[in-house]
Design a protein around this nucleic acid. Structure first.
Length: 270
DNA sequence: CGAACGACCTGCAGGC
DNA sequence: TGCCTGCAGGTCGTTC
């Protein structure tokens, strides 16, 4: 499930339960994630103190004095806080157990997620070529305009390119393009600075609102199914193929772009 | 370099 | 009930 709002909601949900705690043990029930979980990770973490719970793009970064655990939730991953002795369920692949008994439990049916280790001295290759954060100041209309010149790629693909900007997944790309009335297939290099300004603002607004909505369900991170409250009720076009456009009532159309479902209004988006 | 596409994996919805 | 197909919120690696 995770797009950036879910990852940030997860970060905020686990932080108060995990920060400053000492690792008792790391239990790996299944190493077979996107990349194998390092064999020596339990030994590295035993006795280590969690100094910071950070996020970069859709990666959660658990910083210890010795290095950083890089966690990605993939398509189906979740991380939740366990405070009782609930037994692990299907697809509960990893428990990070603290000395006070609280644990972070990683569930990931499709196993597209990862748990990797990085020594902090060298920037990890996964994080090395990422674009700016969408909610940061560096990401704005003039940045998008500048990076898009001479690019013929469809603007939706451009927006979902992690080297351009991180954290804009399929849902929010669809939403932001609808809000700004831009056709997802329009070549990125043929969009004006003014429209890119609107687009950047729409990306920020949509992500910020989704994070805010996720914040209301933070309590669900403890002893729950780990699924943050979804934002679906406020999505304007995603998952609404054939339904009337919120603006003009024209049925929303679905096309495939890069094998991803792309929903837009043929009348409002040009 | 950019762009397109396969690959990874399980679960689920829908058609027959 | 079952079987089959296609689809799902990500993104890396390969190929052209």
């Amino acid at each position: 499930m995770p797009e950036l709002p879910e990852v940030e909601t997860t970060r905020r949900g686990i932080e108060p339960h995990a920060l400053h705690k000492v690792v008792d043990e790391l239990i790996i029930r299944d190493h077979r994630l996107r990349w194998p979980v390092p064999e020596d990770l339990p030994a590295r973490l035993k006795g280590a103190t969690l100094r910071e719970v950070d996020r970069r793009a859709k990666y959660l970064l658990l910083h210890f004095d010795q290095g950083t655990v890089i966690v990605h939730l993939g398509m189906s991953g979740s991380l939740r806080v366990i405070t009782d002795d609930a037994p692990p369920q299907k697809h509960d692949h990893i428990d990070l157990v603290f000395t006070d008994g609280v644990r972070l439990r990683f569930n990931d049916p499709r196993r597209f997620g990862c748990w990797l280790w990085a020594e902090d001295a060298t920037p990890h290759p996964l994080l090395a070529n990422l674009g700016p954060e969408p909610l940061g100041e560096e990401f704005n209309g003039s940045y998008l305009f500048r990076r898009s010149r001479d690019r013929k790629t469809p603007v939706k693909s451009f927006l979902m390119d992690n080297r351009i900007v991180v954290g804009v997944g399929n849902i929010y790309a669809n939403e932001a393009l609808f809000k700004t009335g831009i056709h997802p297939n329009r070549p990125a290099g043929r969009i004006s600075a003014a429209r890119y300004h609107q687009l950047a603002e729409a990306v920020k607004e949509t992500l910020a609102a989704a994070i805010l909505a996720g914040g209301t369900t933070l309590r669900d991170f403890v002893n729950s199914d780990g699924k943050p409250g979804y934002f679906a009720q406020s999505l304007l076009v995603y998952g609404r193929r054939g339904q009337p456009c919120p603006t003009c009532q024209q049925p929303l159309r679905e096309i495939r772009m890069n094998q991803r479902s792309t929903i837009y209004c043929t009348r409002c988006q040009r």
